[in-house]
Structure formats: structure tokens, C-alpha cells
Amino acid sequence: SGPPVSPWPESNWTAPQEFIILGFSGWPPGLRVLLFTLLLPLYLATLAGNLLILGLALAEPALHTPMYFFLGALSAVEVAYTLVLTPRMLAGFLLPPGGQAVAPATCAAQMGLFVALGGSECLLLAAMALDRYLAICRPLSYPQLMTTEVCSVLAASLTTAIFQLPFCHGGLVNHVFCDLPAVLVLACGNRELQENVLLVACLLLLVLPLFLILLSYTKVIVVILGVGDAAGRHKAFNTVASHLTVAVLHYGCATAMYARPLSSSSLEEDKLVSLVYINLTPLLYPAIYTLRNRDMQGALQRALSQRTLGEAHQGELT
């Protein structure tokens, strides 16, 4: 039997004039206002925390190492990621029922940026693991193969391919933003082809980096256990634990949302997972890295001490 196709006649396969992002518009107004009130401080704290890490990584000479370069880049990606998704989601909580209307170009741009930034985050997490691996073992080839340029081309190609599909189910996007599965279910034609597009993206941006992270840290842990004193092993394990915690959060949520067939995907469940994925994980990253990392703590203390001394000196002059 051939691949499943849409039962809608081809005469109805038209491109929507606009997409309607439904979000949580069907929820009671009081609950939506409560969510806005709870999530707005998280959004501001996420921006502040990641901008703080980025600033420290740039300003503190002691942090000018490959590991902290990657950490600063990760924070920059998180800032951009948060700015792309969260403001529109927060606005949706306060708008009247019916959802937010966006032009197809806006929807495509949001999807493309989301894929590019999410893919860049996957590559950075893999690069951070490989940086620790390089310091102890030997290099792997994935960072040379999957560069930021390749990630951007993949994101652009994936977005273009999706928005070239005909749509026969209207433009009601049952999500808080123009996410891949939520837009793909509106498309007509060969569903198997659509699912394969998503599968390839998940393989390149989720499965391979995660495999390399686990492989890298397995080798690192084996080497740590065989050499060094107890204090050195404890410090190394702290670094591994922080990074693995971030990787599990990122890949766990992403896998739950994308690494499954569209036919079994529940968009209502995806919307709930997205509240964690968009609002909590970017906030936890700076908390994990600053609270568990002595280098970052020392840099923050020096920055605060310099500011305090500067304010005191300014006070004496006035």
C-alpha cells in the first residue's frame, strides 16, 4: 500500500493567507492571566541570568578559555531563543480568545529561527562535551562536519520545504508558536514524506549530538577514574554533572516533543511541554552553571567587588 495522503480534494490545497496561533486561548481568562503573572518574572530572570553569564565570559580574562567561550555562546543563543519565542507567547495570554494572527512569512521566520537556534544549542552542547574530551582523549569529527553554517542551511532548507507544502486544513496552529509538528499537521499530500523531513532533522540536531555527548563523557569519566587525586576527580565530576544536567534537560524535552511520528503526537501535550521547554530550561542553565561552577562564582564576586569599589571611589570624589 502507498503512503497515506490527505482525504481532502486537491482543489482545497491552498496556502493560508494567515496562520492563527491558538496557544492557550481556549483556557479560562483568569488562568491565562495567572500564567502571564507567573511567567513574566521567569522571562526577565532568564534574560538577566544569561546576559550575566555572557558578560562575565566576555569581560573576565580568567574565563577566556574554550569551555567558557562555548558557555558564553550558549547564553547568547538562549537570549536570542527567548526573545524569539517568549514575548509572543506572553502576549497570547492577554489577548481575547481566538488566537494570534500572523502572516505566513512571520510564521516561517519564527520556525526558521527556532530551528536554527535550537540546532545551534545542540551543537554547542556537543562542542562543550568534546572540549572536555579533547583535553583528555582525542578529537571527534562532528563539530567539523556540523558547523554553525551547516546548521543554518539545514534550518533554512527545512523551513522552506515545509512552507512549500500545500495546506488543506486551514491555518489554525494548535501551539504557542509556529512549531514544526503543529504546522506540518496542517499540510496535505504525502504524510510519510513530511514525517521523514522531521525525522532527518531530529537525527541531525538531536540524536547525533546526544550520542556524541554521552560517548565523550563516558570516555572522560573512564579516564578520570584512572588518574588524578580525589580532589581533581571531584572537580572534574562537578563539571561533567553540570553539563550532563543541562544536556538531559535540553534533549529530554526536545525528544519528547519531536522524536515521534506525527500521527501519535498530541499537540495539547506538546503545548504543556513547551511551557517547560521555553520558560524553565533557559532559566535553569545559568543557575546550574553559576551555582556549581567555582570559576563563574569567582568571576561574579570579582565583578561585584570592582563595582562596589568603583561606587565607593565615586562617592569619595563627590
Score class of each variant (00 low, 15 high):
Q297K: 15
L206D: 03
W13Y: 09
F163L: 08
V183A: 05
L90N: 11
H234K: 10
A135N: 14
T65D: 03
G228S: 02
Y81N: 04
A48F: 07
W8D: 10
Q297S: 06
M296D: 06
S274T: 14
L275W: 00
Y142R: 15
G2S: 09
K219V: 10
H169F: 07
I20S: 04
E268K: 07
R88Q: 10
P61S: 05
A15M: 13
P4F: 04
P282K: 15
L35W: 12
L74T: 10
S6P: 00
R307P: 00
L300R: 08
S305V: 01
S11M: 01
G315R: 05
L249E: 11
Y133K: 15
L158T: 15
I162H: 07
A236I: 05
L130C: 02
P28L: 14
L210M: 12
Q297V: 00
C253V: 04
T148W: 12
M296R: 07
P96G: 05
L113G: 00
T160Q: 08
A231H: 03
C178R: 06
A231L: 01
I278M: 14
P104R: 10
A73K: 11
Q301N: 14
G189L: 04
G189K: 05
R32P: 02
F69Y: 06
L113S: 10
F69A: 08
L90M: 07
T159S: 11
S1L: 05
V207E: 14
P29Y: 15
Q301H: 13
E78Q: 15
V240L: 12
G72M: 06
L198H: 02
T318Q: 14
P209Y: 02
S152Y: 09
M67D: 09
V276N: 11
L44D: 06
C188V: 03
A91Q: 12
G315D: 06
T290R: 05
Q194R: 14
A101W: 02
L38K: 07
L54Q: 14
V223K: 15
V273Q: 15
I162R: 11
L309D: 12
R302M: 03
G315H: 12
G112A: 01
Y251W: 12
P87Y: 04
L113R: 10
Y277A: 04
L31V: 13
S274L: 13
A312D: 05
Y68A: 07
P143Y: 07
L215K: 15
A45E: 08
G189A: 01
P282C: 12
L44P: 01
P41Q: 14
R307M: 08
L280C: 14
W13Q: 00
N190Y: 14
A247I: 00
T86G: 01
P9Y: 11
Q314M: 03
I213A: 03
P97D: 11
M67H: 09
A303S: 13
V173Q: 09
L58M: 13
A62Q: 04
S216C: 04
A126G: 08
A230W: 13
V246Y: 09
L206G: 03
E121W: 01
A247L: 06
V84D: 09
T65C: 02
L210V: 00
Q144M: 03
L83E: 10
V153P: 00
A161E: 09
Y142S: 06
V176D: 12
